[in-house]
Design a protein around this nucleic acid. Structure first.
Lengths: 223, 223
DNA sequence: TTGACATAGTGTAGATAAAACACTAACGTC
DNA sequence: GACGTTAGTGTTTTATCTACACTATGTCAA
């Protein structure tokens, strides 16, 4: 490193991640229980301080792995929160991210017996530490807005899925029901969606066709 | 302050502001010449370190006042840039903002004789320090995108303006020309636009009606 | 005074996209 | 083979977007 930074103020910097998934027709957020003060015992977003040699995205992705046990999922920077009094210990600026985890990538087993982590419905959050409620709200808003003009919802889907499952993802995030035929028309018009030729039998009714995304990981802007 | 933050890493944190204005049918960005290393002598965005007791928005707004001589204009957080090597001195994370200044609010007089500050067309930038080129690009993109679904362009207008002037703002930002009649139809349908009853005479041709925004400062999401 | 020039201002028809809407198909079970 | 349950399919109507050309009002100069 050539020069050093002089006459300056240093700030504690953290990343916090709003990890979304979908289970049982609800949009869930991962919360972790705080052990230390402040807010010891209350729920908070997974997150942590950014080491000096780590990029912001990189740090958020690490948090996702360490605290949520998830890797390789969609992750996007949301907003930076820096009100001077947002942390009672002193100045901590948080760069917030949000992540989308397909339900099949969540290990509920490991999580069930873990009193430190919990998936909570986004519309039924407990009191959260710091300004984390505002962070979750903004993330939910952003996610809902992106449904309208991108293929972001596909990030919630497993490799193969039915159109009904996908529609239900939209409905859960938006909190309103959609017209089945119009929905299918729009989705099938996307070039990134393709029929697998396979079917999915579940229950005592007609099996549904399985579809697949031909560019997994990509989120396209549409229209 | 109750507790202190222990066992942690502190980071230098700055805000940088992409200040846009419009002059002579071009979208301009305010640049300041760096005096110190690194990048001494090259152009950079106005910005500076965030003091411990100052909010991020507040800091960005202060930079805007101190370094651009502008206050009371539209300001929005853009993105946070935190690649570990973006500053050769060491880790500096930048929370970027962008601001929109109506042309009549820019004091070009004071600026003309100031070799340290310059308004530069966004499509003809010189080499910029750090990752500031990427910051400007993202800001321009965001601004252009917002034209489509918000009333953000009105933040460039003086108190009274003609529809042709407004249309020209759209065209300059988007880099393409728009249909006059369709444009006027859309704009006049906005509830926040009202006719002042006055006219504007400029040059040897028909005078144009002057309009006004009835909620200045507000940026509405439309459609 | 009138003709040339420059910008302001106006409406409609066609195309495209969005919204509303109801029945048939396939499977399992009793 | 009748019933329950979810999958799957088109058309009509409505609203929105696009393309497009002429008249109006002022200044200025001949």
């Amino acid at each position: 490193m050539g020069q050093s930074i002089t006459n300056t103020v240093f700030t504690a910097l953290s990343t916090d991640v709003v990890v979304f998934t979908i289970q049982d027709d609800r949009l869930l957020v991962l919360l972790v229980r705080r052990r230390r003060r402040p807010y010891a015992g209350s729920w908070a977003l997974p997150g942590g301080l950014v080491p000096e040699d780590e990029g912001l995205d990189e740090c958020a992705r690490r948090m996702l792995g360490e605290k949520a046990g998830v890797r390789g999922v969609y992750l996007e920077q949301l907003y930076s929160f820096g009100a001077p009094q947002r942390d009672p210990r002193g100045r901590v600026v948080s760069v917030a991210y949000y992540a989308l985890v397909p339900p099949n990538r969540v290990q509920l087993e490991a999580m069930a017996e873990d009193a430190e982590r919990e998936w909570v419905p986004v519309d039924n959050l407990p009191e959260l530490a710091f300004d984390h409620f505002a962070v979750v709200s903004m993330a939910h808003q952003r996610l809902a807005a992106k449904l309208a003009y991108s293929t972001i919802a596909l990030q919630f889907m497993p490799e193969k899925f039915t159109l009904s499952e996908l529609q239900s993802v939209y409905e859960i995030i938006l909190g309103e029901s959609l017209d089945k035929r119009n929905f299918r028309k729009r989705v099938l018009a996307l070039p990134c969606i393709e029929d697998t030729g396979e079917c999915f039998r579940a229950g005592k009714h007609r099996p549904a066709k399985l579809y697949r995304v031909n560019t997994p990981g990509r989120v396209e802007i549409i229209k």
